[in-house]
Design a binder for these strands. Structure first.
Length: 853
RNA sequence: GCGGGUGUGGCGGAAUUGGUAGACGCGCCGGACUCAAAAUCCGGUUCUGGCAACAGAGUGUCGGUUCGAGUCCGACCACCCGCACCA
């Protein structure tokens, strides 16, 4: 028998699977349906180890689910739009479409080489005209339903490139390409009304038990619900009002000033007549980075007096009105009443501007008063607060709201903003509307969809090529026929990925979603992906699901029943000390004494931290190389061994070689071992050694299925290795009665249990065992309860909690017998010699603890 | 600052959820095979003492609950991640 040659063997089985179409999504049947989904990749050009990890995890579940009798939908697609394609166009002169589609070709082939069990008939690319059409249809339906609106929003304007930048393209307040200082600019943009669902999105998190707690926490924080009150203040000397949101209405008697956001309408009004206010607002507008007062601290809080005053609702006093940079227009009403004694930010501002500090909450007895520059934010008793005196914080909040009557009301505010989903870019899904000078915003008629992108564009000048493309841009108004202009903004790629998983269920439909298909498979049983999408992508997907529900496309609320976030793939970093340049792992070798040196010239290399694989640090290993050298099964096995999936995994050569050695050993074992014939009748009795192997086999079934279902693949691998250790050391002639039969059972079971993890090798071994058909289509083995129950128990015997020995008993041995056997142990006798036995605790089948002194 | 997580041998990690700490593997040590090396196979491997039987210590630190704590409770330390002027 020739050696294990993964390249040949894997190509052979991949072809066989394709020809037999084994991964095609089955039609509905009596069997239950299960949708296994992994986050779709961005077609960057090559797969990386992160892809190998996440797609292996999903594939194991898909294959396991099929074996357990489910109809499985396991699709794959491409997040085709996005900025890198435009960057490639600018840098290399290649058209974004060409670049993207060729990357998709390459990466599809790479994913196929991993042996992933996808139904490629469901493949979806978000940059395809078909996907764009259906997305534009959904967009227009949502627009019609009032779930989308157009409003002015601040954007990052690069004055050199004359273009709008995404937040990630702004580095330290400067454009990433031009280096120019970025200016904030108001532009009309498109918004999804996600805030309409803020409360629902928050509450529903409690009903997602199969989501990681940390993801739910992040989403809760992001939505940021807070309960408080809206209160109105009269401006002294005119009829204007300032409305503020506060969570602490109880501290109203401690208010010493009012602060407005620079973007507040009243600030703007003041600026017209007050040069100092005007200058301050201009300063804030010019420098978007000034809001990130990370290191600045209290001194960083700047502001200016407007000269205005408002009337305190309960006192004869009036309060000065400031414009302050620490008040955000996007939250609440963009105005606050400031209580320096009980809010740190207000205190910082008050100290910087010599404003009064008036404590009104007395800490409870035993709680220390804070220092002069520390606000007290805890509970306590109200003082110096008129009718509130003596109340606690909660009661005072209620009393203030009651007393203010129509000038106040309870209010819930969210940190979450509406989703600004338009981008001033070329490579995205066009917003399907037309601006007509007479009719205004006109949706593109359904028969004209999709609005596709023009091919004849160039990226040799800055800005959005769609805006410069007169032919594409100029169209007759669908309503009145007048000359009109297309919207040149395109959609955020998060829109594309907010519903692609529904599209998979009816990927070729001539409508966005087919009701029967989507309700058959969705909500998704299990979604697997990176934690980096914990907030935005998953929140947008949850929002989209509700929006689609409300426009009648879906009958449920949540997209993903189960969510699993895998850890990162890391690698040690290496640096060449002289120039400090990063080195690729393949450029480095280990020296005799455990150090590192450069392979080419022997220069010593500094080993840095183990960090997430990234091109910039060059600590990357290319999956294509690994698969070529070791095979996909080795790569998959290594990904699953050792590290629990949610933790970071360190990629090491030693680890990969360990996985490769193991598969070699298995390969050889199947050569050398001599199992009984296929489908032989089970012997009536088994000699002890054969029986022991059978027990190991059946216990492994139990363990592996529990491990896979709980995403503990590292333990599943450990259990499989234990089983292989058992059959590797199994000697058929020495085992006695039933030995050969037990060995075949062990081997076949091993192959079936490991098939989800190492599908190619499993297929080959299955065939070698004389089985016809695919192991990937065979059923999961069933554990025999008689063989999984323990036949003897090892009882730990302790004296005063310290282990002194063990005894073997039959399971279920009574307390008295167990106690007696334990007390006979020589070591125990010695330990309690001369002491008085006070108590003997017996936990049957587990432990005996002798308490003596 | 707020929120969340993690901490166990030289290393990755197990521990049936309060009952024998270190499964499985990597590495290392010893042995077999070999002229030799690699590969492979066998044995050992938490630390300290002891030839051994065995004894003592041990799951970030300190304390508590318990017959018994890696696991529960309290305080702290370190590291990692997310959010961050959200009124």
């Amino acid at each position: 028998m020739p050696g294990y040659k993964p390249a040949e063997l894997e190509a052979k089985w991949q072809q066989a699977w394709d020809e037999a179409e084994v991964y095609r999504t089955p039609p509905a049947s009596d069997a239950p349906d299960r949708y296994v989904l992994e986050m779709l990749p961005y077609p960057s050009g090559r797969i990386h180890m992160g892809h190998v990890r996440v797609y292996t995890l999903g594939d194991v579940l898909a294959r396991y689910s099929r074996a357990r009798g489910y109809n499985v939908l396991h699709p794959m697609g491409w997040d085709g739009f996005g900025l890198p394609a435009e960057n490639a166009a600018m840098e290399h002169g290649v058209h974004p479409a060409k670049w993207t589609w060729s990357n998709i070709e390459t990466m599809r082939a790479q994913l196929r080489s991993m042996g992933l069990s996808y139904d490629w008939d469901c493949e979806v690319a978000t940059c395809s005209p078909e996907y764009m059409r259906e997305q534009q249809r959904l967009f227009l339906k949502m627009l019609n339903a009032g779930l989308i609106y157009r409003a002015e929003a601040w954007a990052n304007w690069d004055p050199v490139e004359h273009t709008v930048l995404a937040n990630e393209q702004v580095i330290d307040g400067r454009g990433w390409r031009s280096g120019a200082l970025i200016v904030r600019r108001l532009l009309p943009q498109w918004f999804f009304r996600i805030t309409r669902y803020a409360g629902e999105l928050l509450e529903a998190l409690d009903r997602l038990p199969r989501w990681p707690e940390r993801v739910k926490t992040m989403q809760r924080n992001w939505i940021g619900r807070s309960e408080g009150a809206l209160m109105r203040f009269q401006v002294v000397g005119n009829d204007q009002e300032v409305e503020v949101f506060t969570t602490r209405p109880d501290t109203i008697f401690g208010a010493t000033f009012i602060a407005l956001s620079p973007d507040h309408p009243l600030s703007r009004t003041c600026a017209d007549t007050n040069p100092a206010v005007d200058a301050f607002i201009r300063e804030c507008t010019r420098d978007p980075g000034r809001r990130d007062h990370d290191a600045a601290g209290p001194a960083g809080k700047t502001g200016v007096d407007t000269g205005l005053h408002v009337q305190h609702p309960f006192l004869e006093r009036s309060l000065r009105v400031f414009v302050a940079d620490y008040v955000l227009m996007e939250y609440g009403t963009g105005a606050i009443f400031a209580v320096p004694a009980h809010d740190q930010r207000d205190l910082d501002f008050a100290r910087a501007h010599q404003l009064d500090v008036a404590p009104v909450v007395e800490p409870p007895p035993g709680v220390e008063h804070p220092g002069p520059d520390e606000a007290y934010v805890g509970d306590g008793t109200l003082v110096n607060s008129g009718f509130l005196d003596g109340l606690d914080v909660a009661a005072a909040k209620q009393a203030v709201i009651d007393r203010l009557g129509t000038n106040s009301k309870r209010s819930v505010q969210y940190r979450l903003h509406d989703w600004c989903a338009s981008r001033q870019r070329y490579w995205g899904c066009p917003v399907p509307v037309i601006f007509c000078p007479d009719c205004g915003v006109v949706p593109v008629p359904d028969s004209d969809l999709p609005v596709t992108l023009p091919d004849d564009v160039r990226f040799d000048q800055p800005g959005n090529p769609l805006e410069r493309h007169a032919v594409w841009k100029t169209v007759p108004c669908p309503g009145c026929g007048a000359t009109a202009e297309r919207e040149t903004q395109t959609l955020d790629t998060f829109v594309d990925s907010a519903w692609y998983y529904y599209r998979y269920t009816s990927a070729r439909a001539e409508q966005p979603l087919e009701r029967a298909a989507v309700t058959r498979w969705c909500p998704t049983f299990q979604y697997v992906g990176g934690i980096e999408h914990a907030i935005l992508h998953l929140l947008y997907a949850r929002f989209f699901t509700r929006a689609l529900r409300d426009i009648g496309e879906l009958p449920f609320d949540e997209p993903f029943d189960g969510l699993y976030c895998q850890g990162m793939v890391c690698h040690r970093t290496y640096r060449e000390p002289a120039a400090g340049t990063w080195l690729y792992p393949e450029e480095v070798e280990v020296t005799r004494n455990g150090g590192f040196r450069r392979r080419s010239d022997g220069v010593p290399v500094v080993a840095g931290r183990i960090e997430k694989m990234s091109k910039s640090r060059r600590n990357v290993v290319d999956p294509v190389d690994i698969i070529a050298t070791y095979g996909a099964d080795v790569a998959r096995l290594f990904m699953l061994s050792d590290s629990p999936p949610e933790r970071d995994l360190e990629w090491t050569t030693a680890g990969v070689e360990g996985a490769a050695r193991y598969l070699q050993r298995i390969w050889r074992a199947f050569d050398e071992l001599e199992p009984g014939p296929v489908d032989a009748v089970r012997p009536v009795s088994f000699a002890p050694a054969a029986q022991a192997l059978r027990q190991a086999t059946h216990r492994t079934i139990r363990a592996v299925e529990a491990d896979i279902e709980a995403f503990r693949h590292n333990r599943a691998v450990a259990h499989l290795r234990s089983l292989s250790n058992a059959f590797l050391r199994f000697d058929v002639p020495a085992a006695g009665a039933g030995g050969a039969w037990a060995l075949r059972e062990a081997l076949e079971t091993f192959v079936r249990l490991s098939a989800p993890l190492i599908p190619h090798l499993a297929e080959e071994l299955w065939q070698r065992l004389g089985r016809v058909g695919f192991v990937c289509q065979s059923a999961w083995p069933e554990a025999d309860p008689e063989l999984t129950t323990e036949t003897r128990a090892t009882v730990a015997v302790q004296v005063n909690g310290k282990l002194r020995g063990t005894i073997e008993v039959a399971p279920g041995t009574g307390e008295a017998d167990t106690r007696e056997a334990a007390l006979r142990l020589p070591n125990v006798v010695r330990a309690i010699e001369g002491a008085e036995v006070r108590k003997v605790i017996v936990v049957p089948d587990k432990v005996v603890n002798v308490v003596a002194r």
